[in-house]
């Protein structure tokens, strides 16, 4: 079963560059990535640029509306994600608890849609 770990955080709540905290955080991400690779569970994952670079789009009445900014203006932004392939939710939650940003923000765990549940 594949799960996406969506990593949300408020940039100002995260450690600043050059602090010992950020070194710990980066080491934490490195360790998590290595762990998932070693377990053979990592299917993907990227970090995103800040919401100031985001553009949102929708189509209304056949017309494309393009807007500056993210979908929702909230304090905490989607900052990155992982996709893991594990047996159940508990295993996915284990990885979520290892995401260093969980200390400052929130990690949302969502199962991916399964288009072939029979597995054949």
């Amino acid at each position: 079963m594949q799960y996406m770990l969506l990593i949300y955080g408020a940039p100002e709540a995260e450690p600043a560059y050059g602090t010992p905290e950020i070194a710990t955080m980066m080491a934490g991400y490195g360790a998590l990535s290595e762990r998932m690779k070693a377990d053979g569970t990592l299917r993907g994952g990227e970090g995103l640029q800040g919401v100031e670079t985001a553009t949102s789009l929708r189509i209304r009445n056949g017309k494309v509306e393009t807007m500056d900014g993210p979908f929702a203006t909230t304090k905490e932004h989607l900052g990155g994600y992982y996709i893991v392939d594990v047996p159940d939710l508990d295993a996915a939650l284990k990885y979520a608890a290892m995401v260093p940003s969980a200390l400052y923000g929130t990690v949302e765990v969502r199962p991916l849609m399964d288009y072939n549940p029979a597995g054949n």
């Binding site: 079963m1 047996p87 159940d88 939710l89 508990d90 765990v109 969502r110 199962p111």
Partner: peptide
Amino acid sequence: AAARIPFAVPGPED
């Protein structure tokens, strides 16, 4: 069912 919450007694760690 959808999120596959396990049907299991948790291990010692949890």
